[in-house]
Design a protein around this nucleic acid. Sequence first.
DNA 1: ACTTACTGTAATATATTTTTAACATTTTGT
DNA 2: ACAAAATGTTAAAAATATATTACAGTAAGT
Lengths: 72, 72
Amino acid sequence: MNKNGELYNKIPILRAEKKWSQKDLANQVGVTRQTIASIEANRYNPSLILAYEIAFAFEKEIYEVFEYKFTN
Amino acid sequence: MNKNGELYNKIPILRAEKKWSQKDLANQVGVTRQTIASIEANRYNPSLILAYEIAFAFEKEIYEVFEYKFTN
DNA sequence: ACTTACTGTAATATATTTTTAACATTTTGT
DNA sequence: ACAAAATGTTAAAAATATATTACAGTAAGT
């Protein structure tokens, strides 16, 4: 796959608003705490379904949680 | 990962509007034709970045290309 | 009818995400 | 100051996405 941009996310901010730990969010969406930590730190590119589950947990749309900035 | 829903997509419709083959779209987003075919057929769950690249190719937002229907 | 392009799908290989387990550091509550 | 919870990070294994190759079937153009 040919990336043309960089992925950013607002998960830490949204978690803070809800006062959720990484583990709280992880439990809600059915992944491990490390998966959430890795996504927050941009260590990897989540699946679309996981992105939807995270957005749903925050009662947001994907574009309110993730941003993809094209560089090319 | 714990799926709570099903992923649907409008890629075939959007391709038809643009008169693009699977290969045309694949080339634009930098994947193979089989990757596009598999996503169209819901054989798998693309990465968020690939979803953004596909939406961008169609000049659409992700929610205009993909829909995630919660079942739980 | 023929050729070429397009699509469906499968097998195997490779890359990446996700899990699990672990340990160190930082933050929070008392 | 102490204990408990939260976070950062890493390594190895497991699961899943993506690439590559291949072949068959369908649609489209001439």
